[in-house]
């Protein structure tokens, strides 16, 4: 089972290593991890996809909360949220393959970001299923390289995952 956690942390050196260290020490598996600053430059958000059952996810949440640099840990509910990931895929593409690949890219609303004699690099944004389907369709052409950012997520509607305003 995969669970997405949205983790607000102090934007300080060493925080990423504390969190990575916690996962390895306690034997938790990270599927993906994406980090960036938030609307408040003092705070970073880590979106972590964890592999494990309910017990493991509970422990991950509690152990993360014990870190002084971790401000808030929230579980992302798939139905109530939008999740996205960005991938860059470099595909084998000589001149007579190119148009077919471009057609597939168009269907997925992906964009071509680089072209060479023998390759095409395509950028796609989407959720996990869309990216998997796209990857599957491109595979027969020969994927030379695939780079993904890891999942990021945001709640639907006006709900936010923020820290309570300091009084």
């Amino acid at each position: 089972m995969k669970t997405t956690l949205s983790v607000l942390v102090e934007n300080q050196p060493g925080v990423l290593s504390r969190i990575a260290g916690l996962f390895s020490r306690r034997g938790f598996n990270i599927d993906s991890l994406a980090v960036g600053t938030t609307e408040n430059p003092d705070i970073s958000r880590m979106t972590i996809v964890v592999e494990g059952d309910e017990y493991v996810v509970e422990q991950v949440k509690k152990q993360l909360n014990k870190l002084v640099d971790v401000i808030k840990v929230s579980k992302i509910i798939p139905e109530d949220s939008v999740t996205r990931e960005l991938v860059l895929i470099k595909v084998d593409a000589d001149s007579h393959m190119r148009s077919e690949i471009i057609q597939i890219a168009e269907i997925f609303r992906a964009s071509i970001v680089d072209v060479s004699q023998k390759s095409l690099t395509i950028e796609l944004t989407g959720d996990k299923d869309k990216i998997a389907a796209f990857e599957e369709l491109l595979r027969p052409f020969g994927i030379k390289e695939l780079v993904r950012t890891g999942v990021i997520a945001v709640n639907r509607g006006a709900n936010t995952i923020k820290i309570e305003e300091e009084v």
Partner: peptide
């Protein structure tokens, strides 16, 4: 030493 002791300190500072 902060890296080394991160797993078994409640918190540490450099």
């Amino acid at each position: 030493i902060t890296g080394a002791t991160a797993p078994f300190t409640k918190h540490n500072y450099l």
